[in-house]
Amino acid sequence: MAQVAMTVNGASVSGDVEGRTLLVQFLRESLKLTGTHVGCDTSQCGACLVHVNGEAVKACTMLALEADGTEVATIEGQAGDDGTLSVVQQAFQDHHGLQCGFCTPGMVMSAAALLKDNPKPTETEIREYLDGNICRCTGYHNIVKAVLAASGQEVPAIAAE
């Protein structure tokens, strides 16, 4: 076992982990932050997406020890202390960007990372950026609408091609 320490959603945390402990395991099992989901074991679905030092990262494809000393942001830190949803979360609710909600934490974190670098993305840019986030329910259109709305842009009618 080795000691790991990092900042998660602004709070200093630490714990004992094995070499093989994944960041997502540390978040879910040690810190009980179960909002970050695990949807695959092939690094393909994006349900586990968090920010590490401000960058979108798959928490299932990073060792907890690699995150030592970093600043991690997860879905639990997105809403305000009083429960007010973040702009992205509110847009997902307003535009029905979720159904079962399994992919949603990863989608919201991915969208937040996109908007930080690119505050007014085009529809194509949104779709390309969300390439690594798989959703089994929505068919994506409402997610794209939500991200457009969260960026303060007009939400066009998007229909299946």
């Binding site: 690094s43 994006g46 997406l49 979108a56 990262v57 798959k58 494809t61 990372a113 690594g132 986030n133």
Partner: peptide, 9 residues
């Protein structure tokens, strides 16, 4: 390559 999160690592 891959997707944004893969490219970040």
């Amino acid at each position: 390559i891959g997707d944004p999160a893969v490219r970040n690592r």
